[in-house]
């Protein structure tokens, strides 16, 4: 079935109805989350009690808004710090990986490429516990030998960063490899013919060409880190990133506060998406 082949009108009607229903299904949960952030009620449910902005700006019980809820605000900060660390690391290693696989042929290349993909097919929770087990083992060994408690290897932000980095790097590598593959090597050679060293040629020709992919990989990595739940859950210490903080709240019972945080997350993601689209167009 393609547009150029004539078909019965009823087929079109049914198909279009199906597509419409599909997009309603996609949009519905997000719409209700956003709408109930403005409901003047203790619970994110019907009936509608009137419009309010208290779940954003309210500063007294029982309606403390997001901007006055210290634990939520600080967890957003924590998530942002983790996100930046993970993205920087993932983009750096992703870039070296992309160059390695693009520029060199070596015996273990095929095997290493499969290993590079693997983190994507390991369940996040298993990645989390494997890193938890290993770091605890090292920390315990250090304690036995030197009586020194290596804090960074106990559950906490360092481990969260490492855990997220372990699989987000694969995604960064794939994004960067895809763009590097389409790069015309003769441009680099031309720079070298004009007297540039190899490193200078890469820095002044190849890296600017990669820039949209670098920004794209950074944003995707940041978003994946910000949203990550499974791996983070196993490695988190006392400073909870946003998803964990929200999960703890949700277990206690839902309030429209969670709706307003969610709405802000959606707005934040949209801004990131727009930045990314703007950069891809260049």
């Amino acid at each position: 079935m393609i547009p150029t082949i004539p078909r019965h009108r009823s087929v079109d009607i049914v198909y279009n109805a199906y597509i419409t229903m599909f997009f309603v299904y996609l949009a519905l949960p997000l719409i209700v989350v956003a709408v109930f952030a403005f409901n003047d009620s203790q619970f994110p449910s019907l009936p509608w009690q009137g419009f309010t902005l208290d779940w954003f700006f309210g500063d007294s019980q029982p309606m403390v808004g997001v901007f006055h809820e210290k634990s939520i605000m600080s967890s957003i900060g924590t998530s942002a710090i983790v996100g930046v660390c993970v993205s920087v690391l993932a983009v750096v290693v992703g870039t070296t990986n992309a160059f390695l696989f693009n520029r060199y042929d070596f015996r273990a290349k095929g095997v290493l490429y499969i290993f590079m993909i693997l983190p994507l097919v390991i369940p996040g929770i298993v990645l989390g516990i494997s890193i938890l087990v290993s770091s605890s083992k090292v920390a315990n060994a250090v304690w036995d030998v030197a009586q020194f408690d290596w804090e960074a290897l106990r559950p906490g932000l360092t481990l969260v960063v490492l855990g997220q980095f372990s699989f987000i790097t694969t995604i960064a590598t794939l994004v960067l490899s895809a763009r590097l593959k389409n790069f015309d090597r003769s441009l680099e050679e031309a720079a070298q013919n004009l007297g540039a060293s190899q490193l200078t040629a890469v820095r002044t020709v190849t890296i600017p060409y990669l820039a949209p992919a670098l920004v794209g990989a950074f944003l995707v990595a940041f978003l994946m880190s910000f949203e990550n739940f499974n791996t983070t859950l196993m490695l988190v210490g006392s400073d909870a990133p946003l998803t964990i903080a929200m999960f703890d709240r949700l277990k206690e019972g839902s309030t429209p506060l969670l709706n307003s945080v969610s709405l802000m997350l959606m707005l934040g993601s949209s801004v990131l998406a727009l930045i990314m689209i703007a950069f891809q167009k260049r």
Partner: peptide, 29 residues
């Protein structure tokens, strides 16, 4: 439009379904 829902955290998506499906939720009402 297919991509948009996945720009928000899984937690938010799940929360959306809770609001929709629970006893006092939107679908029930």
């Amino acid at each position: 439009m297919c991509l948009i829902p996945f720009w928000v955290s899984e937690l938010v998506r799940t929360f959306g379904w809770m609001i929709l499906l629970r006893e006092t939720g939107v679908v029930s009402s």
